[in-house]
Design a protein around this nucleic acid. Structure first.
Lengths: 230, 230
DNA sequence: TCAGCGGGAAATACAGTGTATCGACATGAG
DNA sequence: CTCATGTCGATACACTGTATTTCCCGCTGA
């Protein structure tokens, strides 16, 4: 048998590690959303068989955990401002920006405890921002409140953004797209306040809305950690 | 052929409507979480074939929309208190309670626009609570902020609750279950504030925590709709 | 140098999913 | 009685997460 007849030896399997797996999964999710992440596709992107992944993760849930922790690395600012308010605000804004880069983050935010190294680091940063400004319990309550707002606001924004994109139209046209239904509902007169809001409310952009609400919540925190001198 | 040989005529299909379908889906989700909801199982519970459902819904997503709207009916109080603060607080608390009755609600909250009749009614109630107390845009911002907090807080609470249940243990034992990991992480010294919080923080029950944060957010709203006389 | 073997990767298998398509049957019209 | 219609169930398909089996490559011992 000549060399030409001899088949190429099978390519040895590419080495794998958690990092590469998570990167592939994140890329997939960035392109097609969380539902585009399947173990088969992740493995395929790494030129591996599906079952190979089970050497690194025990279940798909764990892969999601790793993905969530991965993007938490993007949330941590390189250096933390000394001002607690700026620090908490920056963390919230960076969370929002991370979610706009990785829309699927909105699906995971708040959905599972963030116990990975980056998740813990973000929590640490939040707590550290307020450290010493009030007793521990107040600080914890404050961090939880700001985080909860952040989670909820980001989720709503992404949900609306997806709804707009699903109709493939601009924001103005959106209410016309869902108009047949919403308009009819509003016309029933059962939702007067809502009708007024839709009719008379000015549409502020999402970032401004997020910032406004965030400021309010931070105001509330400020009032608690430094009660006004009576 | 005798009567005895003749088979019973096939039972005519039970009549179906959206209401029954949604009820079956909700029951399934209550028992086994959202992942237990499959079109086949929903249909089976109604003694129908899976494809039968497609006469009433176009896609599984729509079924989830209907389920979400269904539980929003439980959130609406029978009568709304006149006090805006009590009204918004009641809506938030009822949302939380609904989520504790239907844990899967936490998975859907904030994840999609709530355009069904009950969802709109809840939004209407929120807006109505503040109607006239400030300009429309401020009212909208306030409602969005409170809702965002509510969504985030409920999601976090349910996520923690599930994590506890997954280990099958009480809250105290939980940190011992995840201890091997978390404890090791805290021991690295990279998370001093977090370590202090875990060590010195008193564990308040979830409802109190929710209420505290909610009160802070409502305080913030109060400050905006009735600015302190200068 | 060869036999056996151990381990890791791949292939196969399985139960289940959402949904498209097809076939049959019951019912109403002519 | 016959035929059309439209609704429902069965079937089909591509895909999922994961368990199990198979296979092959490189190593070790003789």
């Amino acid at each position: 048998m000549t060399v030409w007849d001899r088949p190429e030896p099978p390519t040895p399997p590419v080495p794998l590690d958690r990092e590469r797996i998570v990167a592939a999964a994140v890329a997939l999710a960035d392109e097609g959303g969380l539902e585009a992440v399947s173990l088969r596709k992740v493995a395929a992107r790494l030129s591996a068989g599906p079952m190979r992944l089970y050497g690194y993760i025990a279940t798909k849930e764990q892969l999601l955990d790793l993905m969530l922790d991965e993007v938490h690395a993007e949330i941590l600012p390189e250096e933390q401002p000394g001002d607690w308010r700026a620090a908490l605000g920056a963390l919230a804004h960076r969370t929002r920006q991370a979610a706009l880069r990785h829309l699927w983050l909105a699906d995971l935010l708040g959905g599972r405890p963030t116990l990975g190294p980056n998740g813990l680091a973000v929590t640490e940063a939040r707590l550290a921002a307020l450290h010493g400004l009030a007793d521990i319990d107040t600080v914890m309550r404050a961090v939880e409140t700001v985080s909860a707002y952040c989670t909820g606001a980001v989720r709503r924004e992404v949900a609306n953004l997806r709804a707009e994109r699903a109709t493939g139209l601009s924001k103005r046209d959106w209410q016309r797209a869902h108009g047949p239904h919403v308009t009819r509902m509003l016309a029933t007169g059962r939702f007067p306040a809502l009708a007024e809001a839709v009719h008379d409310g000015s549409d502020v952009d999402a970032e401004a809305s997020f910032t406004t609400g965030l400021d309010w919540v931070l105001d509330a925190v400020a009032a608690k950690i430094a009660p006004p001198p009576v």
